[in-house]
């Protein structure tokens, strides 16, 4: 569905008074996505995710390289590409004061669908995406999750075979995110769609994607299944905070028994990576209890993009963010 070779985009930097600088937003990426795949495009803000997506969706011309999307060349057959794809951008797709149903009908009609067809398809999508009864609601009066689902409905109104989702769950509460994930995986089950989504949440990529492309500084640094990527990071980060700094050493010893990495101790805080922390923690707490080590708090953090990055690039995302 997507085949890109050496796709690159440079922007002319606009420093006032300074010398002109070329900013390489995307520095030659190769992307292959097969029909029916759900592929995640993972990277920090500014890594080039959206720029790549905008090139693949014909919103931006590549400065180098080629890409065929849904069988059409993005540079020379942009009309055909647009007809075949759905694009759900980060920034939304509807006016806050418009009515949801009218927005989706107008959007469908811009694809050349008749008004009747657009309405039928729109109502069908509202039903599938749990937007029943919101046809005449204004987006400003919707919840964040509803608005996001409306955006997805907008992107699907013309039955595209390939759907691009740019940061679909950014800014949503956990419940709305989980709900949206179900809808996104449904796209493939119900419509046989191919889905290409960007995210900076590892758990999201994990929950949805068959394959993940990791992008950093405009280049793809890894392409693998979520499991394989996570295997590179050894486990969840478990952090214990003891009440008495004198007991930190003893706590570190107990943590070391279940840890997959070395234990870091910082006065009262003891941390290490533990594979399958959920299973190990109850035993750890019992052991700490038996040793009369008093805990101030315990925290378990699932591997994050930051961790993947650290493993892949040898540096943390936050260092130069």
């Amino acid at each position: 569905m997507i085949h890109a070779r050496g796709l690159a985009r440079t922007f002319a930097g606009r420093g006032r008074g300074k010398e002109k600088e070329e900013v390489k937003a995307v520095a030659g990426v190769d992307i292959d996505v097969e029909k029916g795949e759900i592929v995640g495009f993972l990277g920090p803000n500014g890594a080039g995710k959206t720029t790549t997506l905008r090139m693949l969706t014909t919103l931006l011309k590549p400065t180098a390289g080629t890409a065929t999307v849904a069988g059409f060349d993005v540079a020379t057959q942009s009309q055909e590409v647009r007809r075949s794809i759905g694009y759900v951008s980060q920034s939304g797709s509807t006016s806050p004061e418009a009515r949801a149903g009218e927005e989706i009908m107008d959007h469908g009609m811009l694809y050349g669908i008749s008004q009747k067809q657009a309405e039928a398809r729109g109502r069908e999508l509202f039903e599938q995406l749990d937007l029943d009864g919101l046809w005449t609601r204004e987006p400003r009066a919707m919840s964040g999750g509803q608005r996001r689902r409306l955006d997805i409905a907008m992107g699907l109104v013309h039955d595209p075979t390939l759907v691009f989702l740019d940061e679909p769950t950014t800014g949503l509460d956990p419940q709305a995110r989980a709900n949206l994930w179900t809808h996104i995986s449904d796209l493939r089950v119900r419509l046989g769609s191919t889905v290409f989504l960007t995210t900076h949440y590892l758990d999201e990529a994990d929950a949805l994607c068959d394959r993940i492309l990791v992008i950093d500084h405009g280049s793809i640094v890894a392409s693998d299944t979520p499991d394989a990527l996570k295997r590179q990071i050894s486990g969840d980060l478990v952090e214990l905070v003891v009440t008495d700094a004198a007991q930190a050493g003893a706590a570190a010893e107990l943590l070391a028994r279940i840890a997959d990495t070395g234990v870091d101790t910082d006065t009262t805080s003891v941390s290490a990576r533990v594979r399958g922390a959920g299973h190990e923690i109850p035993g750890l707490i019992r052991a700490l209890d038996a040793a009369s080590i008093e805990l101030e708090s315990i925290e378990v953090r699932r591997p994050t993009l930051d961790d993947v990055f650290l493993t892949l690039t040898g540096r943390s995302l936050r260092e130069d963010a």
Partner: peptide, 11 residues
């Protein structure tokens, strides 16, 4: 609100 972008991705 993203409307312009949404319209520009249509044919």
């Amino acid at each position: 609100a993203g409307v312009i972008e949404a319209e520009r991705v249509t044919p």
